[in-house]
């Protein structure tokens, strides 16, 4: 496990970006998330791991209020982004989602050109005054998405014509184009091959210098490779949350140990 050494090296104390207290989520009568308390730090990659259906994606979607689109979902508790409650009545989810970007499990570029895919967010938020500024944002975002060199000659080509890994990096570029502060990633590599996965993981590590990244993953190796903090969810409970190295080498809870050694899940 030589990955571990690298991760341990990068751990340092950052300010808390997102503070979640006593979080509960109900889907109709199902209690999907129970009493979860997590502090997500700035400029840190936080990984959520756990068996399928344990609520890690649900919890992730609470962080930018994507659960609002599900009629039967009810979210309770306090979610504070830089000290402000994101579920406050005065908060418009549109503004929140510009600050808390999201990358989904399946690459989902718009059926538009590569340029329009990235430019869409800045356009609707009015981030560019003119075409030149927009061009600049698009280039910068595609560079941050580590895909610029591959697509710079065909920005007018459809985004859906790219390979799976390229599409996912395009989606990451699209997410960073609105200058978010937190980037949520819901199993971003589960539809990708190992090479594309390696590229995206490398990208996540670079993104850490600017953003607070939260990643849901099924792959424990991936969590160990990219994250500094890891949260283990089981049956809607947050079982253990701590330094990634600590979770993987010396877990406190027996359930965590069982999961990472492959006995449950």
């Amino acid at each position: 496990m030589n990955d571990m050494s690298r991760v341990e090296r990068q751990v340092d104390t950052n300010s808390i970006k997102l503070e979640c207290r006593d979080c509960q989520v109900y889907y109709g009568d199902t209690h999907a998330i129970k009493d979860v308390n997590v502090d997500i730090e700035d400029k840190t990659v936080t990984a959520f791991i756990g068996p399928s259906g344990c609520g890690k994606s649900t919890f992730l979607r609470c962080l930018n209020r994507m659960n609002d689109t599900i009629d039967i979902a009810r979210v309770m508790g306090s979610f504070k982004l830089d000290g402000e409650d994101i579920y406050d009545k005065r908060v418009d989810p549109v503004q929140l989602r510009a600050k808390v970007g999201m990358v989904f499990q399946k690459p989902n570029p718009f059926p538009k050109s590569i340029y329009d895919n990235v430019a869409y967010g800045p356009r609707i938020h009015g981030l560019a005054k003119n075409k030149a500024e927009l061009d600049e944002i698009v280039e910068k975002s595609l560079r941050r998405g580590a895909i610029w060199d591959e697509v710079k000659d065909r920005l007018d080509a459809p985004g859906t014509g790219l390979s799976g890994g390229q599409q996912q990096r395009l989606c990451i570029a699209r997410a960073v184009a609105t200058e978010p502060e937190v980037l949520l990633m819901d199993e971003p590599c589960s539809a990708l091959d190992p090479i594309a996965t390696a590229q995206v993981e490398e990208l996540i590590d670079e993104l850490r210098s600017r953003y607070s990244v939260v990643i849901v993953t099924h792959s424990m190796q991936q969590a160990a490779r990219v994250s500094q903090k890891t949260a283990f969810f089981h049956l809607g409970n947050l079982v253990e949350f701590g330094e990634t190295g600590q979770i993987f080498t010396n877990p406190e809870d027996p359930r965590t140990e069982s999961y990472i050694t492959g006995r449950i899940g």
């Binding site: 689109t69 059926p111 869409y120």
Partner: peptide, 27 residues
């Protein structure tokens, strides 16, 4: 229209109406 398109639009901060009129309706 696949729900992933709606998610994508909402994810970058489009309002519901923008998601519908910019992405869902054309498809």
């Amino acid at each position: 229209v696949p729900p992933s398109i709606r998610d994508a639009a909402l994810g970058v901060g489009a309002s519901k109406m923008q998601a519908v009129f910019h992405h869902v309706l054309p498809l």
